[in-house]
């Protein structure tokens, strides 16, 4: 009698435990690929939930989500797109928060081109400055705001080449086709410092903060793994990973 009761209790706990381990489909902004892979691995280890990740551009994810893509959590590259989805009642209300704040750097693949204060911009002694398309990428908007603050918008207009996203912008600069590029610190940071080339970390007061917001989508309502992941992103462990990739947190 006693033994069977214990058995039932054990079975109950076991199945209960199984039911709790859920899977969450996450749409992740391309610039957050590297840290998110690390975080997702830790998340699975620590919670037993599984996070399967899809990487892509925020605009494309928006179109896919609006057309029924099966994502439950969205880690966007900006704060506007999640807010827009929220207004369109495509999200779980109150779930949105800023998981990372991007840092803009002026970077060159050449080791001695960029000085510590970014004076190379005013010098104008270069052919191309790569900037992410400001219409599409928050880093592009921040770069244009920085140029405006420096009073260089008109002077450098003819030298600007646009990447469709921050990854392509980095590619233009990394291949040397553009001597200079406004890229994400997370792209040039290796093991907590800037690995190659030369860079000027643009002070945060030069532009609006590059907020990246996360949100649970309507699809993820009641999904335990989705809620757990959102909580997990705020843990000191996750925050440390996010910071090590050159992002700030709020």
């Amino acid at each position: 009698m006693k033994a069977s009761r214990i058995l039932v209790a054990m079975l109950f706990t076991l199945t209960g435990g199984l039911a709790q381990a859920e899977e969450v489909q996450v749409a992740v902004a391309a610039n957050f690929t590297a840290p998110m892979k690390v975080i997702a691995a830790d998340f699975e280890k620590d919670t037993g939930h599984k996070a399967s990740l899809a990487f892509g551009s925020t605009g494309k994810f928006y179109a896919q989500i609006k057309n029924g893509a099966p994502f439950q959590v969205f880690l966007a590259a900006d704060d506007e797109t999640p807010a827009k989805l929220e207004r369109e009642t495509m999200t779980v209300p109150g779930s949105r928060f800023t998981y990372a704040v991007g840092t803009l750097v002026l970077w060159s693949a050449k080791p001695d081109l960029v000085d510590a204060k970014g004076a190379v911009l005013a010098g104008g002694d270069f052919a191309h400055l790569a900037v992410a398309n400001p219409k599409l990428a928050p880093y592009g908007t921040a770069a244009m705001e920085t140029l405006a603050k420096l009073g260089l918008t008109d002077k450098l207009a003819s030298k600007i080449v646009q990447g469709e996203n921050i990854a392509q912008t980095y590619q233009f600069a990394a291949t040397g086709n553009a001597e200079l590029g406004f890229v994400a610190l997370s792209q040039v940071m290796k093991d907590g410092k800037i690995g190659q080339g030369s860079a000027w970390v643009v002070p945060a007061d030069m532009h609006q903060p590059i907020r990246q917001d996360a949100v649970i989508l309507a699809n993820g309502k009641g999904n335990a793994a989705a809620e757990a992941l959102m909580k997990y992103l705020k843990t000191p462990k996750a925050v440390a990973i996010i910071k090590s990739y050159g992002y700030a947190v709020q």
Binding site: S57, G59, K60, Y62, A63, K84, H128, A130, N133, K135, L136, I160, V161, Q162, G163, E164, F172, N177, A178
Partner: peptide
């Protein structure tokens, strides 16, 4: 290889992509 420069390298297919991405 284009760099999305108006009148120089921004062709129709890229312009469509820009419009779609910008919603």
């Amino acid at each position: 290889i284009g760099g999305n420069i108006e009148d120089k390298t921004r062709v129709v297919s890229v312009q469509i992509y820009n419009h779609v991405e910008a919603l």
